[in-house]
């Protein structure tokens, strides 16, 4: 019984994806849809192979912007998280600013950023940061607040200082939430870089897509989309792996006590 459900879980996502591709392929062929309108998946795949070096060239730029933005947002989130935990009165002051920063339409900022910061990498990194730091910060703050108050008073009764309590109790307890935030950010991060490249850049997957879209090379646009999807998934997987290493006590494979 358990075995069959496991197989079901493993096959279901793959088969539903395959079904969509088959319908898409069939629809394009039966209706003879022109290439500039919608290429068949088989065509998109052969295009990926054909323009592979070009895709690699632009991906490296996008990945670099994403990596910088992502790392900086982790650092920013940790700083904000620690600071707000230490000076709890700041929480009320900073929270609205954090939320408002997320309500600004991303596309507007992507257009305005180059006016302020030029056409290089910086505005792209800033957009990635703006998208990524929020889920990480919010989850980290939630995690830091999640400590049991009895746990904290136990440490107080043992004479532990504030920093020791933070290091031993609060921060480790916040790590699982922190990684949830990290994974949400990882899914959006590459998309954020692509959006800012779309508005204006000299390199990168977003830039590549605008060029191809203008010449109706939809197969190349979709090829880039697939690369973006794959890279985003890999980034989430990377966060998973890091969590597995850094948060060994939360592994799903740990057997729970059965009392």
């Amino acid at each position: 019984m358990k075995r069959s459900t496991n197989i079901g879980y493993n096959l279901l996502p793959g088969s539903s994806l395959l079904l969509v591709l088959v319908i898409w392929e069939a629809a394009v062929r039966i209706n003879d849809i022109p290439l500039w309108l919608l290429p068949a998946p088989s065509r998109v795949i052969s295009t990926i192979v054909e323009i592979w070096p070009l895709l690699v060239y632009h991906s490296t730029t996008t990945l670099l912007e994403t990596a910088y933005g992502f790392l900086l947002s982790i650092i920013l989130a940790l700083l904000i998280g620690f600071l707000l935990d230490y000076v709890s009165i700041l929480k009320q002051a900073v929270n609205p600013v954090l939320v408002i920063s997320q309500t600004i339409p991303l596309i507007v900022l992507a257009v305005l950023m180059p006016l302020w910061f030029g056409w290089g990498m910086l505005p792209k990194i800033l957009i990635v940061m703006l998208v990524c730091f929020f889920p990480i910060t919010i989850n980290l703050m939630k995690g830091l607040d999640s400590s049991d108050s009895d746990q904290l008073s136990l440490f107080r009764s043992m004479g532990a200082g504030r920093w020791e309590t933070f290091k031993i109790v609060k921060f480790p307890a916040a790590l699982p939430a922190f990684f949830s935030g990290l994974k949400i950010s990882a899914t959006y991060s590459i998309m954020a870089a692509v959006i800012s490249e779309w508005v204006g850049a000299q390199r990168g997957l977003g830039y590549f897509m605008t060029i191809q879209q203008k010449s109706f090379a939809i197969d190349k646009v979709l090829a880039a989309v697939i690369v973006i999807c794959v890279l985003s998934l890999l980034l989430v997987k990377l966060a998973d792996v890091i969590e597995y290493v850094l948060v060994p006590w939360n592994r799903r494979t740990l057997t729970d006590s059965n009392n």
């Binding site: 746990q151 107080r156 043992m158 480790p172 790590l175």
Partner: peptide
């Protein structure tokens, strides 16, 4: 604080 040891109802062991 920090003179006697004190155990509460919950075990309060750290998961981490």
């Amino acid at each position: 604080t920090a003179r006697v040891s004190y155990m509460q109802q919950k075990d309060l062991l750290l998961d981490s």
